[in-house]
Simulated scan of single mutants.
Amino acid sequence: MATIVRFHELGGPEVLKFEDVPLQEPGKGEVRLRVQAAGLNRAEALYFRGQYLEQAKLPSRIGYEVAGVVEAVGEGVDASWIGKSVATIPAFSMSQYGTLGEQAVVPAFALTGYPANLTPEQAAAAWMQYLTAYGALVLHGKVGAGDFVSIPAASSSVGLAAIQIVRDAGATAIAVTRTSAKKDELIGLGAHHVIVSGEEDYAARMKEITGGKGSRLIFDPVAGPYVETLAAGAAQDGILFIYGGLSMQPTPFPLMQSFRTGLSVRAYTVREITTKPDRLTAGKKYVFERLADGRFVPKISKMFVYKDTVEAYQYLESNEQVGKVVIRVL
């Protein structure tokens, strides 16, 4: 038997329940993990509230990101995986392959090893964030030396990954945060500049920081009306990547600013990486190498124990964190 987390109705974190279930045998192309740690993300909070791209099929498990040890493999899977320490990449449906619990069965193609210098907790806090930022900024945005990059919601795990990617590329990372409470910490975590959007004129500060050029790349998970402001600080031929809808408000297209500067506005999700094997292989190599040599270091905001799963998601939704919220399972 093993304990898993599942929910039978939509709502806040309180709908999450612990349930004892028999050990699940992996099917064709699948593996079973003994889970050691789980990283939480906003997609899961939207999922159990019924606000995610994918609707839950109740009752539903939850979770994309775990690290653990392979215990069993199904038909067609290389048995050499057994006993290896691995992490999961978010390349599957939560309603089919939720991972939060003492055991998780996932498709083998969603597994990756991780560098020996990482703990299981760090490994569970790495792949969603770095691959998400990699796809927009590196694969599509071609970030490089001399670029100015605007990063709204910069204190999130993906925002911090973006800061590290921008710095590694020799570009300038401009973190955007609503209040000054996190400003010093963002500077300490690598941001070259911080714009406090609730206290400063974003476009004016962006022009000041960039010498009038504006930001060539904008990496935004919030969407909603603020995209008009982000567009006003964009450079000629800039690209605005929108990878989330945290504002839960309609998102206007900044038409007039696009006329002026040739700004492109583009929706983006990490599925553009995880659903294409060649892109995923390249992304994994890019992230693995930088985790191994220390250029990338996952920032864990707060660690919870497994029995405090509900409290962990409540903390995630509080917006107090800087970095990843992680649950230590075993």
Score class of each variant (00 low, 15 high):
296 F>Y: 00
87 A>G: 07
186 L>E: 07
207 K>S: 14
214 G>I: 01
135 G>D: 11
188 G>S: 13
109 F>H: 15
274 T>G: 11
55 Q>W: 11
318 S>Q: 07
274 T>E: 12
31 V>N: 05
320 E>A: 13
46 L>Q: 09
20 D>W: 14
77 V>M: 02
229 T>L: 04
227 V>D: 09
99 T>P: 10
316 L>W: 00
152 P>M: 04
248 M>I: 15
310 V>P: 04
279 R>P: 14
89 I>Y: 05
284 K>P: 10
135 G>Y: 13
237 D>A: 04
132 T>H: 05
170 G>V: 08
246 L>V: 02
288 F>S: 06
265 V>F: 08
197 S>K: 08
306 Y>H: 12
27 G>K: 03
250 P>H: 01
38 A>W: 00
263 L>A: 08
75 E>G: 10
145 A>W: 15
203 A>Q: 05
2 A>C: 12
58 L>Y: 01
93 S>C: 08
33 L>V: 02
151 I>Q: 06
115 P>R: 05
119 T>E: 10
5 V>F: 02
86 V>Y: 03
266 R>H: 12
277 P>E: 08
99 T>D: 04
241 F>G: 02
198 G>T: 12
153 A>S: 13
63 G>Q: 03
291 L>H: 00
210 T>N: 06
12 G>Q: 09
279 R>S: 14
12 G>Y: 11
4 I>K: 13
253 F>S: 10
8 H>R: 11
186 L>C: 07
194 V>N: 06
145 A>D: 13
79 A>R: 11
77 V>N: 06
189 L>Q: 03
273 I>R: 09
29 G>K: 06
253 F>G: 11
126 A>Y: 10
117 N>G: 12
323 G>S: 08
227 V>Q: 06
60 S>W: 00
75 E>L: 03
119 T>G: 08
250 P>V: 02
14 E>S: 10
112 T>V: 05
94 M>D: 01
12 G>T: 09
186 L>T: 07
159 G>V: 02
295 R>A: 07
197 S>D: 11
302 K>Q: 10
210 T>M: 01
223 A>P: 13
148 F>D: 12
207 K>L: 15
240 L>T: 06
241 F>Q: 01
230 L>A: 05
303 M>A: 14
268 Y>P: 12
77 V>C: 03
156 S>E: 04
11 G>M: 05
288 F>Q: 00
275 T>L: 14
179 T>V: 15
257 Q>R: 15
240 L>W: 10
35 V>A: 03
62 I>F: 00
92 F>A: 06
32 R>D: 05
214 G>L: 00
154 A>D: 07
6 R>P: 10
212 G>N: 07
42 R>C: 01
122 Q>E: 14
59 P>A: 07
